[in-house]
Write a protein that binds this DNA or RNA. Sequence first.
DNA 1: CTACCTGCAAAAGTTTTGCCACTAC
DNA 2: GTAGTGGCAAAACTTTTGCAGGTAG
Lengths: 187, 187
Amino acid sequence: MRARRLLAPPGTGEYLTAPMDTRTDTPRDAEERPDPLRIERLCIERGLKMTGQRRLIARVLSEAIDHPDVEELYRRALALDARVSIATVYRTVRLLEEKGILERHDFGGGRARYEATDHGHHYHLIDIDTGKVIEFSDVQHEALAKAIAERLGFTLIGHRLELFGRRPADAEAAPRRGPRRRGGEPA
Amino acid sequence: MRARRLLAPPGTGEYLTAPMDTRTDTPRDAEERPDPLRIERLCIERGLKMTGQRRLIARVLSEAIDHPDVEELYRRALALDARVSIATVYRTVRLLEEKGILERHDFGGGRARYEATDHGHHYHLIDIDTGKVIEFSDVQHEALAKAIAERLGFTLIGHRLELFGRRPADAEAAPRRGPRRRGGEPA
DNA sequence: CTACCTGCAAAAGTTTTGCCACTAC
DNA sequence: GTAGTGGCAAAACTTTTGCAGGTAG
């Protein structure tokens, strides 16, 4: 009786974020977020009580350049300090999400995945063969989304654009068998 | 100990699909899918064995103009014929999703919601105050998505665009307290 | 006839929570 | 000192599945 765990199994070289950009906006690369206290500072700003566990989780989040799920965050935190429980990780990501410090994503696979919101609005392209997530931004789309919402009589509060693509079969390591995904997507 | 059930509670006048359109594409309205055998026909086309339960569920799906979750589908099916179990509904939607007849969505709220794929590609605008989902299509966006994917070196297989908005506070019944959502969104 | 279905209840998997000791401020 | 925290284990929820009996084709 087993079913979940569909995208790249969390644990190792999984869903790495490839540095990318499509247009006029900011590019991202692995070296972009070196400050391990970034998230902690944000927490303090919002008046959160900083305990050892929170500081630890905040640091893990600050150093993440990918989109880890709770289990992965827990694993990374444990590696730094064993005095954390997964319940606390769950409570903390929920709290940080409510505070607007984290963004929750559902890329399929049955588990929520998180990333800090402090590096600008951007979108995701998911490689359906490998599960890798590539970030990009696009001002044109940004404007279009706003325009559409207004045309429908709404004020745009947020939006989500996800592209599911496949690298033309040739370059790069052989595409691993297409994993079954969960969560609304390709059409 | 209770937590899920965050968006509009399934059961009654919930997430109704408002007929809408933004641009050159097809508008939708409640009268658009009158054929109660639509899905069943698709099932047969794909060689599925048609049992009473499947026919029942197919009919419920054919008549749905919204994005019901499994529990809601089960409820509607039960109302027509008690000889169906929720396990079968789960099995059936999964099967139909694999066959490309249904599309699974995660609009937040912790439950997957479904809709038939046979009425064209479109996007969703979720009213964050009521949980209502409005469908729309936009050729401009369609083209942009394809262009972006190619710019990143991918062939676009599918894409998802979701707008989260709020109706300017005035017209319409008072916005019910903003429900906590689950699932990546506003930023 | 046979491969595929269904119901039921149990299990799996993720996320939340009651309770109580504990600690940041 | 006190409101907010963390750990643990149990609970809540959604979704899947083993099994045994049924049924479409």
